[in-house]
């Protein structure tokens, strides 16, 4: 018995060391964002700053435009999540509960494009936005970010809706609910657990998205998102490391908080993806 617990202690110690290395980049980032420039270069390894300076954050927020980038990121994320949630729930509902003409074909097409890399489609997507007159605009970015097959979400919704007993639907029909009302009043509210998963996963993906916003905002810095903003800041200004660290905190801390509070749903969604 004692031998086992010694082995376990070793495992925990090793894990603790690895875990520290794992989170070190984040600790470094947070610590650097509170340091002054001279302290940053003087004692780079020291993780606890001598004093907490908020100058870096103020500089990043105002001078480096991170306030605007933050607002843009929030607008884009919320809009994309709303669009994706609505469209995948509607489609998942009929895929899960009905046999309709063309269902297999459309699902096959969706599934077939799962492996296509974004870099394959990004040039035409931008040209399409140009034709719609939406290039270099937030609306264009939102539409492009919402685009795609969303196969994982379709699967999650359709298998959930398929599992709802028919009696629920029959009761709704007897109460005089039509096709749309049955969905909107009975089915959609039932799907809350799936909704939370979809909202969590899509928020994180959209918040972190880089290539599309990079291209869509190339000529319009005013609509940059945080992921692109920091990249641009590094390109323009290589000296202000503590300012960059503060910008990185502004971009990363909200999404980490969101993840830690909703991680069960995110992890369930990812695990569900590999099972199906």
């Amino acid at each position: 018995m004692k031998k086992i617990s010694v082995g376990k202690i070793v495992i925990y110690l090793v894990l603790a060391v690895i875990a520290f290395i794992w989170v070190y980049p984040f600790l470094w980032m947070v610590s650097a964002s509170f340091k002054t420039q001279s302290e940053f270069f003087g004692s780079g390894l020291n993780l606890i700053p001598q004093a907490f300076h908020f100058d870096n954050f103020i500089r990043a927020w105002n001078n480096a435009n991170f306030g605007v980038y933050f607002k843009n990121t929030i607008i884009v994320t919320i809009s994309v999540v709303a669009i994706v949630l609505m469209s995948t729930s509607l489609a998942g509902y009929v895929i899960g509960r009905y046999a309709f003409i063309g269902k297999k074909v459309i699902l096959g097409i969706f599934m077939a494009s799962i492996t296509i890399p974004l870099v394959f489609t990004v040039i035409p997507v931008y040209e399409l936005l140009k034709e719609l007159g939406l290039e270099q605009s937030l609306i264009g970015l939102i539409l492009a970010e919402s685009g795609g097959g969303h196969v994982i979400f379709l699967m999650l919704f359709s298998s959930f809706y398929a599992s709802i007993p028919n009696e629920m639907e029959e009761a709704a029909t007897i109460d005089g609910c039509g096709f749309f009302q049955t969905y909107a009043k009975i089915m959609f509210p039932l799907a809350k657990p799936i909704m939370v998963t979809v909202v969590t996963m899509q928020s994180i993906w959209t918040w972190n998205s880089f290539l599309l916003p990079l291209i869509v905002t190339l000529n319009n810095p005013e609509i940059r998102t945080l992921a692109v903003g920091l990249y641009a800041l590094r390109g323009e200004n290589v000296v202000d490391w503590t300012g960059i660290a503060a910008g990185a905190c502004i971009a990363i801390v909200p999404i980490v908080i969101l993840f830690v509070s909703l991680q069960k749903y995110f992890v369930d969604g990812i695990a569900g993806a590999v099972k199906s």
Partner: peptide, 16 residues
Amino acid sequence: FMIPAVLLYVLFLGYP
């Protein structure tokens, strides 16, 4: 019900 999903697919994945 499929229209929004199909539109998002066709415009930003299928057509590209």
